[in-house]
Nucleic acid binder design. Structure first.
Lengths: 205, 205
DNA sequence: CGTCGCATTGATATCGCTCAAATCCGGTGG
DNA sequence: CCACCGGATTTGAGCGATATCAATGCGACG
Protein backbone atom coordinates (compact mmCIF):
# COMPACT_ATOMS: atom_id res chain seq x y z
CA UNK A 1 0.00 0.00 0.00
CA UNK A 2 0.94 3.61 -0.50
CA UNK A 3 3.13 2.39 -3.31
CA UNK A 4 3.59 5.42 -5.50
CA UNK A 5 2.72 5.32 -9.14
CA UNK A 6 5.90 4.96 -11.14
CA UNK A 7 5.16 7.85 -13.47
CA UNK A 8 5.50 10.45 -10.76
CA UNK A 9 8.00 8.64 -8.68
CA UNK A 10 10.16 9.20 -11.73
CA UNK A 11 9.37 12.89 -11.46
CA UNK A 12 10.94 12.84 -8.03
CA UNK A 13 13.82 10.51 -8.76
CA UNK A 14 16.12 13.13 -10.21
CA UNK A 15 15.49 15.38 -7.20
CA UNK A 16 16.33 12.72 -4.67
CA UNK A 17 19.58 11.73 -3.08
CA UNK A 18 19.80 8.05 -2.20
CA UNK A 19 21.67 6.71 0.77
CA UNK A 20 21.89 3.47 2.70
CA UNK A 21 21.61 3.40 6.46
CA UNK A 22 22.59 0.71 8.94
CA UNK A 23 20.27 -0.44 11.69
CA UNK A 24 20.35 1.99 14.57
CA UNK A 25 21.35 5.00 12.51
CA UNK A 26 19.13 8.06 12.60
CA UNK A 27 17.84 9.52 9.36
CA UNK A 28 16.93 12.68 11.21
CA UNK A 29 16.37 13.77 14.78
CA UNK A 30 13.73 15.76 16.55
CA UNK A 31 14.39 19.45 16.27
CA UNK A 32 16.71 19.24 13.28
CA UNK A 33 15.96 21.50 10.33
CA UNK A 34 13.43 19.76 8.09
CA UNK A 35 15.14 20.18 4.75
CA UNK A 36 14.10 16.85 3.23
CA UNK A 37 11.16 14.60 2.75
CA UNK A 38 12.12 10.95 2.66
CA UNK A 39 11.13 7.89 0.73
CA UNK A 40 11.89 4.46 2.12
CA UNK A 41 12.90 2.21 -0.77
CA UNK A 42 14.00 -0.74 1.35
CA UNK A 43 14.23 -1.68 4.99
CA UNK A 44 12.38 -0.38 7.98
CA UNK A 45 12.34 2.97 9.70
CA UNK A 46 10.49 3.88 12.86
CA UNK A 47 9.43 7.40 13.71
CA UNK A 48 9.43 7.94 17.43
CA UNK A 49 9.57 10.48 20.17
CA UNK A 50 11.03 10.23 23.58
CA UNK A 51 9.42 10.71 26.94
CA UNK A 52 10.97 12.72 29.73
CA UNK A 53 12.97 9.73 30.96
CA UNK A 54 13.98 8.51 27.56
CA UNK A 55 11.20 6.02 26.96
CA UNK A 56 10.83 5.60 23.26
CA UNK A 57 7.34 5.88 21.86
CA UNK A 58 6.82 4.71 18.31
CA UNK A 59 4.38 6.89 16.44
CA UNK A 60 4.82 5.42 13.00
CA UNK A 61 6.59 2.53 11.38
CA UNK A 62 7.41 3.29 7.77
CA UNK A 63 7.41 0.34 5.43
CA UNK A 64 9.28 -0.10 2.20
CA UNK A 65 7.59 1.90 -0.53
CA UNK A 66 6.33 4.64 1.75
CA UNK A 67 7.20 8.26 2.18
CA UNK A 68 7.86 9.43 5.68
CA UNK A 69 8.10 12.83 7.29
CA UNK A 70 5.78 14.19 4.62
CA UNK A 71 4.23 16.41 7.25
CA UNK A 72 7.57 18.10 7.67
CA UNK A 73 7.10 19.73 4.28
CA UNK A 74 5.29 22.50 6.10
CA UNK A 75 7.31 22.85 9.22
CA UNK A 76 10.73 24.24 9.96
CA UNK A 77 11.92 21.33 12.05
CA UNK A 78 11.31 17.65 12.42
CA UNK A 79 8.80 16.76 15.10
CA UNK A 80 10.12 13.29 15.72
CA UNK A 81 13.18 11.13 15.31
CA UNK A 82 13.57 8.61 12.50
CA UNK A 83 15.65 5.59 13.44
CA UNK A 84 16.48 2.74 11.09
CA UNK A 85 15.18 -0.58 12.43
CA UNK A 86 16.50 -2.67 9.55
CA UNK A 87 19.19 -1.67 7.08
CA UNK A 88 17.47 0.79 4.79
CA UNK A 89 17.76 2.51 1.46
CA UNK A 90 16.35 6.00 1.73
CA UNK A 91 15.77 8.54 -1.02
CA UNK A 92 15.72 12.07 0.35
CA UNK A 93 14.02 14.85 -1.60
CA UNK A 94 14.86 18.45 -0.78
CA UNK A 95 11.77 20.09 0.67
CA UNK A 96 12.05 23.29 -1.31
CA UNK A 97 12.34 21.48 -4.60
CA UNK A 98 9.36 19.33 -3.72
CA UNK A 99 7.42 22.43 -2.81
CA UNK A 100 8.30 23.95 -6.15
CA UNK A 101 7.18 20.81 -7.94
CA UNK A 102 3.90 20.79 -6.05
CA UNK A 103 3.27 24.38 -7.08
CA UNK A 104 4.18 23.71 -10.68
CA UNK A 105 2.39 20.43 -11.28
CA UNK A 106 -1.23 20.36 -10.17
CA UNK A 107 -1.67 16.71 -11.02
CA UNK A 108 1.33 15.78 -8.94
CA UNK A 109 0.01 17.91 -6.10
CA UNK A 110 -3.27 16.01 -6.15
CA UNK A 111 -1.48 12.70 -5.89
CA UNK A 112 0.72 13.96 -3.11
CA UNK A 113 -2.36 15.17 -1.30
CA UNK A 114 -3.89 11.73 -1.72
CA UNK A 115 -0.88 10.17 -0.03
CA UNK A 116 -1.02 12.51 2.93
CA UNK A 117 -4.78 12.03 3.21
CA UNK A 118 -4.37 8.30 3.34
CA UNK A 119 -1.78 8.59 6.06
CA UNK A 120 -4.19 10.79 7.97
CA UNK A 121 -6.91 8.19 7.72
CA UNK A 122 -4.51 5.49 8.85
CA UNK A 123 -3.40 7.56 11.82
CA UNK A 124 -7.01 8.18 12.82
CA UNK A 125 -7.77 4.49 12.54
CA UNK A 126 -4.88 3.82 14.84
CA UNK A 127 -6.18 6.37 17.32
CA UNK A 128 -9.50 4.59 17.23
CA UNK A 129 -7.77 1.30 17.91
CA UNK A 130 -5.77 2.63 20.82
CA UNK A 131 -8.92 3.98 22.42
CA UNK A 132 -10.29 0.46 22.76
CA UNK A 133 -9.79 -0.85 26.24
CA UNK A 134 -9.12 -4.56 25.90
CA UNK A 135 -6.31 -6.29 24.08
CA UNK A 136 -8.78 -8.58 22.33
CA UNK A 137 -10.78 -5.66 21.02
CA UNK A 138 -7.65 -4.11 19.61
CA UNK A 139 -6.71 -7.29 17.82
CA UNK A 140 -10.23 -7.60 16.44
CA UNK A 141 -10.13 -4.00 15.32
CA UNK A 142 -6.77 -4.53 13.68
CA UNK A 143 -8.07 -7.45 11.66
CA UNK A 144 -11.28 -5.66 10.73
CA UNK A 145 -9.57 -2.48 9.58
CA UNK A 146 -6.24 -3.70 8.21
CA UNK A 147 -7.15 -7.22 7.21
CA UNK A 148 -7.54 -7.79 3.50
CA UNK A 149 -10.34 -9.61 1.79
CA UNK A 150 -13.60 -10.88 3.18
CA UNK A 151 -11.70 -13.21 5.51
CA UNK A 152 -9.90 -10.21 7.05
CA UNK A 153 -6.49 -11.73 6.73
CA UNK A 154 -3.79 -9.59 8.27
CA UNK A 155 -0.23 -10.27 7.23
CA UNK A 156 2.38 -9.64 9.88
CA UNK A 157 4.99 -7.08 8.89
CA UNK A 158 7.86 -8.08 11.11
CA UNK A 159 7.71 -9.83 14.43
CA UNK A 160 4.85 -10.15 16.87
CA UNK A 161 6.82 -7.91 19.18
CA UNK A 162 6.64 -5.14 16.61
CA UNK A 163 2.90 -5.64 16.34
CA UNK A 164 2.59 -5.36 20.11
CA UNK A 165 4.21 -1.94 20.00
CA UNK A 166 1.80 -0.94 17.26
CA UNK A 167 -1.15 -2.00 19.38
CA UNK A 168 0.13 -0.25 22.47
CA UNK A 169 0.61 -3.51 24.38
CA UNK A 170 3.51 -5.41 25.83
CA UNK A 171 4.53 -8.40 23.79
CA UNK A 172 3.58 -10.73 26.64
CA UNK A 173 0.05 -9.40 26.73
CA UNK A 174 -0.26 -9.77 22.98
CA UNK A 175 1.09 -13.32 22.95
CA UNK A 176 -1.36 -14.30 25.62
CA UNK A 177 -4.24 -12.59 23.92
CA UNK A 178 -3.49 -14.23 20.59
CA UNK A 179 -3.20 -17.62 22.25
CA UNK A 180 -6.48 -17.14 24.11
CA UNK A 181 -8.32 -15.93 21.02
CA UNK A 182 -7.09 -18.86 19.02
CA UNK A 183 -8.09 -21.22 21.80
CA UNK A 184 -11.57 -19.75 21.75
CA UNK A 185 -11.75 -20.01 18.00
CA UNK A 186 -11.96 -16.28 17.42
CA UNK A 187 -8.93 -16.11 15.18
CA UNK A 188 -6.58 -18.39 13.29
CA UNK A 189 -2.84 -18.01 13.14
CA UNK A 190 -1.14 -19.32 10.09
CA UNK A 191 2.30 -18.67 8.69
CA UNK A 192 2.83 -15.04 9.48
CA UNK A 193 -0.76 -13.95 9.23
CA UNK A 194 -3.86 -13.68 11.36
CA UNK A 195 -7.35 -14.52 10.17
CA UNK A 196 -10.56 -13.45 11.82
CA UNK A 197 -12.99 -16.30 12.30
CA UNK A 198 -16.44 -15.15 11.33
CA UNK A 199 -18.66 -15.08 14.36
CA UNK A 200 -22.38 -15.75 14.11
CA UNK A 201 -24.22 -12.53 14.78
CA UNK A 202 -21.23 -10.36 13.96
CA UNK A 203 -21.81 -8.86 10.57
CA UNK A 204 -18.58 -7.78 8.91
CA UNK A 205 -17.76 -4.14 8.53
CA UNK B 1 -5.46 26.92 15.33
CA UNK B 2 -6.20 25.59 11.88
CA UNK B 3 -8.11 28.79 11.31
CA UNK B 4 -8.08 29.27 7.58
CA UNK B 5 -6.78 32.44 6.09
CA UNK B 6 -9.72 34.59 5.07
CA UNK B 7 -8.49 35.13 1.53
CA UNK B 8 -8.94 31.56 0.50
CA UNK B 9 -11.81 30.75 2.75
CA UNK B 10 -13.53 33.31 0.57
CA UNK B 11 -12.51 31.28 -2.44
CA UNK B 12 -14.50 28.40 -0.97
CA UNK B 13 -17.44 30.38 0.33
CA UNK B 14 -19.33 30.52 -2.91
CA UNK B 15 -18.91 26.78 -3.38
CA UNK B 16 -20.25 25.92 0.04
CA UNK B 17 -23.73 25.25 1.26
CA UNK B 18 -24.33 26.26 4.85
CA UNK B 19 -26.65 24.46 7.19
CA UNK B 20 -27.35 24.35 10.91
CA UNK B 21 -27.55 21.08 12.78
CA UNK B 22 -29.06 20.28 16.15
CA UNK B 23 -27.21 18.27 18.74
CA UNK B 24 -27.49 14.58 17.97
CA UNK B 25 -27.98 15.02 14.25
CA UNK B 26 -25.55 13.31 11.91
CA UNK B 27 -23.76 15.33 9.27
CA UNK B 28 -22.87 12.11 7.49
CA UNK B 29 -22.67 8.44 8.28
CA UNK B 30 -20.12 5.73 7.73
CA UNK B 31 -20.47 4.24 4.29
CA UNK B 32 -22.39 7.14 2.75
CA UNK B 33 -21.12 8.55 -0.52
CA UNK B 34 -18.47 11.17 0.27
CA UNK B 35 -19.69 14.02 -1.87
CA UNK B 36 -18.72 16.86 0.43
CA UNK B 37 -15.92 18.15 2.56
CA UNK B 38 -17.13 20.06 5.59
CA UNK B 39 -16.14 23.15 7.47
CA UNK B 40 -17.34 23.64 11.03
CA UNK B 41 -18.13 27.33 11.50
CA UNK B 42 -19.71 26.98 14.94
CA UNK B 43 -20.48 24.26 17.44
CA UNK B 44 -18.91 20.88 17.95
CA UNK B 45 -18.86 17.77 15.83
CA UNK B 46 -17.36 14.43 16.76
CA UNK B 47 -16.15 11.92 14.23
CA UNK B 48 -16.59 8.42 15.51
CA UNK B 49 -16.88 4.83 14.55
CA UNK B 50 -18.80 2.09 16.21
CA UNK B 51 -17.61 -1.20 17.57
CA UNK B 52 -19.40 -4.47 16.95
CA UNK B 53 -21.76 -3.93 19.86
CA UNK B 54 -22.36 -0.28 19.19
CA UNK B 55 -19.71 1.21 21.46
CA UNK B 56 -18.87 4.59 20.14
CA UNK B 57 -15.22 5.40 19.68
CA UNK B 58 -14.31 9.02 19.09
CA UNK B 59 -11.53 9.42 16.58
CA UNK B 60 -11.63 13.17 16.21
CA UNK B 61 -13.41 16.11 17.73
CA UNK B 62 -13.69 18.95 15.26
CA UNK B 63 -13.61 22.40 16.75
CA UNK B 64 -15.09 25.58 15.38
CA UNK B 65 -12.94 26.87 12.53
CA UNK B 66 -11.77 23.47 11.37
CA UNK B 67 -12.41 21.40 8.32
CA UNK B 68 -13.42 17.84 8.88
CA UNK B 69 -13.62 14.81 6.64
CA UNK B 70 -10.87 16.32 4.48
CA UNK B 71 -9.52 12.84 3.98
CA UNK B 72 -12.74 11.89 2.26
CA UNK B 73 -11.73 14.02 -0.70
CA UNK B 74 -9.95 10.97 -2.04
CA UNK B 75 -12.33 8.22 -1.12
CA UNK B 76 -15.69 7.15 -2.41
CA UNK B 77 -17.34 6.84 0.96
CA UNK B 78 -17.07 8.26 4.43
CA UNK B 79 -14.98 6.17 6.79
CA UNK B 80 -16.66 7.38 9.94
CA UNK B 81 -19.79 9.02 11.24
CA UNK B 82 -20.01 12.71 12.09
CA UNK B 83 -22.41 13.50 14.89
CA UNK B 84 -23.15 16.97 16.17
CA UNK B 85 -22.28 17.32 19.85
CA UNK B 86 -23.40 20.92 20.17
CA UNK B 87 -25.64 22.81 17.80
CA UNK B 88 -23.46 23.48 14.79
CA UNK B 89 -23.20 25.58 11.68
CA UNK B 90 -21.58 23.56 8.93
CA UNK B 91 -20.46 24.69 5.51
CA UNK B 92 -20.33 21.81 3.06
CA UNK B 93 -18.20 22.04 -0.05
CA UNK B 94 -18.87 19.64 -2.93
CA UNK B 95 -15.87 17.35 -3.29
CA UNK B 96 -15.66 17.55 -7.04
CA UNK B 97 -15.66 21.34 -7.05
CA UNK B 98 -12.99 21.38 -4.39
CA UNK B 99 -10.95 18.94 -6.42
CA UNK B 100 -11.28 21.18 -9.44
CA UNK B 101 -10.20 24.18 -7.41
CA UNK B 102 -7.19 22.30 -6.06
CA UNK B 103 -6.17 21.42 -9.58
CA UNK B 104 -6.66 24.94 -10.84
CA UNK B 105 -5.08 26.94 -8.06
CA UNK B 106 -1.63 25.77 -7.01
CA UNK B 107 -1.38 28.25 -4.18
CA UNK B 108 -4.67 27.10 -2.75
CA UNK B 109 -3.55 23.50 -3.10
CA UNK B 110 -0.44 24.22 -1.07
CA UNK B 111 -2.50 25.73 1.72
CA UNK B 112 -4.92 22.86 1.68
CA UNK B 113 -2.01 20.47 1.85
CA UNK B 114 -0.68 22.38 4.84
CA UNK B 115 -3.99 21.90 6.64
CA UNK B 116 -4.04 18.17 6.03
CA UNK B 117 -0.39 17.89 7.04
CA UNK B 118 -1.08 19.63 10.30
CA UNK B 119 -3.97 17.31 11.02
CA UNK B 120 -1.67 14.39 10.31
CA UNK B 121 0.84 15.67 12.79
CA UNK B 122 -1.87 16.19 15.38
CA UNK B 123 -3.17 12.68 14.87
CA UNK B 124 0.31 11.24 15.27
CA UNK B 125 0.81 13.24 18.43
CA UNK B 126 -2.39 11.76 19.73
CA UNK B 127 -1.20 8.26 18.87
CA UNK B 128 1.93 8.97 20.81
CA UNK B 129 -0.13 10.11 23.76
CA UNK B 130 -2.37 7.08 23.73
CA UNK B 131 0.66 4.79 23.73
CA UNK B 132 1.65 6.13 27.13
CA UNK B 133 0.55 3.78 29.87
CA UNK B 134 -0.32 5.92 32.82
CA UNK B 135 -3.01 8.56 33.09
CA UNK B 136 -0.56 11.02 34.57
CA UNK B 137 1.84 10.60 31.71
CA UNK B 138 -0.93 11.29 29.26
CA UNK B 139 -1.90 14.47 31.04
CA UNK B 140 1.72 15.57 31.13
CA UNK B 141 2.08 14.79 27.45
CA UNK B 142 -1.07 16.74 26.67
CA UNK B 143 0.23 19.82 28.42
CA UNK B 144 3.66 19.51 26.85
CA UNK B 145 2.39 19.08 23.31
CA UNK B 146 -0.82 21.11 23.28
CA UNK B 147 -0.09 23.62 25.99
CA UNK B 148 0.72 27.12 24.78
CA UNK B 149 3.55 29.28 25.93
CA UNK B 150 6.51 28.45 28.11
CA UNK B 151 4.13 27.71 30.99
CA UNK B 152 2.40 25.03 28.89
CA UNK B 153 -1.06 26.28 29.60
CA UNK B 154 -3.75 24.09 28.11
CA UNK B 155 -7.18 25.58 27.72
CA UNK B 156 -10.04 23.15 28.06
CA UNK B 157 -12.27 22.96 25.02
CA UNK B 158 -15.49 21.71 26.51
CA UNK B 159 -15.96 19.61 29.59
CA UNK B 160 -13.47 17.45 31.44
CA UNK B 161 -15.50 14.48 30.29
CA UNK B 162 -14.72 15.36 26.70
CA UNK B 163 -11.06 15.59 27.56
CA UNK B 164 -11.21 12.16 29.17
CA UNK B 165 -12.48 10.68 25.91
CA UNK B 166 -9.68 12.42 24.07
CA UNK B 167 -7.12 10.90 26.42
CA UNK B 168 -8.62 7.44 26.20
CA UNK B 169 -9.62 7.40 29.87
CA UNK B 170 -12.84 7.27 31.80
CA UNK B 171 -13.85 10.58 33.26
CA UNK B 172 -13.51 9.18 36.79
CA UNK B 173 -9.91 8.20 36.18
CA UNK B 174 -9.15 11.62 34.76
CA UNK B 175 -10.76 13.47 37.67
CA UNK B 176 -8.78 11.42 40.11
CA UNK B 177 -5.56 11.90 38.21
CA UNK B 178 -6.02 15.65 37.97
CA UNK B 179 -6.82 15.87 41.65
CA UNK B 180 -3.78 13.79 42.56
CA UNK B 181 -1.46 15.76 40.30
CA UNK B 182 -2.67 19.02 41.73
CA UNK B 183 -2.26 17.67 45.24
CA UNK B 184 1.32 16.76 44.39
CA UNK B 185 1.96 20.13 42.88
CA UNK B 186 2.57 18.81 39.39
CA UNK B 187 -0.13 20.89 37.76
CA UNK B 188 -2.38 23.81 38.51
CA UNK B 189 -6.03 24.03 37.61
CA UNK B 190 -7.44 27.43 37.08
CA UNK B 191 -10.60 28.56 35.39
CA UNK B 192 -10.91 26.14 32.53
CA UNK B 193 -7.23 25.59 31.95
CA UNK B 194 -4.42 23.38 33.14
CA UNK B 195 -0.90 24.58 33.77
CA UNK B 196 2.16 22.40 34.07
CA UNK B 197 4.28 23.19 37.09
CA UNK B 198 7.89 23.19 36.09
CA UNK B 199 9.69 20.33 37.77
CA UNK B 200 13.34 20.55 38.72
CA UNK B 201 15.31 18.19 36.53
CA UNK B 202 12.66 18.11 33.84
CA UNK B 203 13.87 20.21 30.97
CA UNK B 204 11.00 21.43 28.83
CA UNK B 205 10.51 20.01 25.37
C1' DC C 1 -38.65 23.44 42.36
C1' DG C 2 -37.62 19.33 39.90
C1' DT C 3 -34.66 17.43 36.58
C1' DC C 4 -30.67 16.69 33.96
C1' DG C 5 -25.89 16.57 33.19
C1' DC C 6 -21.28 17.61 34.95
C1' DA C 7 -18.15 17.14 38.75
C1' DT C 8 -16.34 14.48 42.46
C1' DT C 9 -15.23 10.73 45.58
C1' DG C 10 -15.57 5.77 47.34
C1' DA C 11 -15.24 0.59 46.86
C1' DT C 12 -14.26 -3.28 44.24
C1' DA C 13 -12.74 -6.16 40.31
C1' DT C 14 -10.23 -6.87 36.34
C1' DC C 15 -6.85 -6.59 33.00
C1' DG C 16 -2.44 -5.66 31.52
C1' DC C 17 2.27 -4.55 33.20
C1' DT C 18 6.37 -6.22 35.48
C1' DC C 19 9.63 -9.60 36.66
C1' DA C 20 11.05 -14.25 35.74
C1' DA C 21 12.12 -18.38 33.33
C1' DA C 22 12.07 -21.96 29.70
C1' DT C 23 12.06 -23.14 24.75
C1' DC C 24 12.98 -22.52 20.03
C1' DC C 25 15.40 -20.74 16.15
C1' DG C 26 18.95 -18.88 13.00
C1' DG C 27 23.42 -17.50 12.73
C1' DT C 28 28.39 -17.71 13.97
C1' DG C 29 32.72 -19.38 15.11
C1' DG C 30 35.70 -23.05 16.57
C1' DC D 1 29.66 -30.78 12.87
C1' DC D 2 28.68 -28.93 17.07
C1' DA D 3 28.62 -25.57 20.83
C1' DC D 4 27.27 -21.24 21.71
C1' DC D 5 24.72 -16.92 21.48
C1' DG D 6 21.13 -13.49 20.92
C1' DG D 7 16.57 -12.54 19.91
C1' DA D 8 11.80 -14.07 19.36
C1' DT D 9 8.36 -16.76 21.48
C1' DT D 10 5.80 -18.59 25.16
C1' DT D 11 4.01 -19.33 29.86
C1' DG D 12 3.77 -18.31 35.05
C1' DA D 13 2.86 -15.42 39.29
C1' DG D 14 1.75 -11.19 41.54
C1' DC D 15 0.83 -6.38 41.75
C1' DG D 16 -0.96 -2.06 40.56
C1' DA D 17 -3.57 1.06 37.87
C1' DT D 18 -7.68 1.83 35.64
C1' DA D 19 -12.47 0.37 34.59
C1' DT D 20 -16.72 -0.29 36.68
C1' DC D 21 -20.49 0.42 39.68
C1' DA D 22 -22.38 3.54 42.99
C1' DA D 23 -23.51 7.65 45.46
C1' DT D 24 -23.55 12.65 46.32
C1' DG D 25 -23.17 17.64 45.48
C1' DC D 26 -23.80 21.30 42.37
C1' DG D 27 -25.33 24.48 38.77
C1' DA D 28 -28.29 25.41 34.72
C1' DC D 29 -32.55 25.52 32.80
C1' DG D 30 -37.39 25.02 32.16
Amino acid sequence: MTSPRPEWLAALAHLAVERTYDAGEAVFRLGAAARHVHFLAEGRVTLSRFGPRGEEVAIHAARAGEFFAEASLHSERYHCTAVVARPALVASIPSDELRALLRRDAEFAMQWLAIVSRQLRQARTRVERLCLKGARERVRHLLLTEGSGAAHRYTLHGSVKDLAVDLGLTHEALYRTLAAMERENLILREEGSLVLVRQPGFPGV
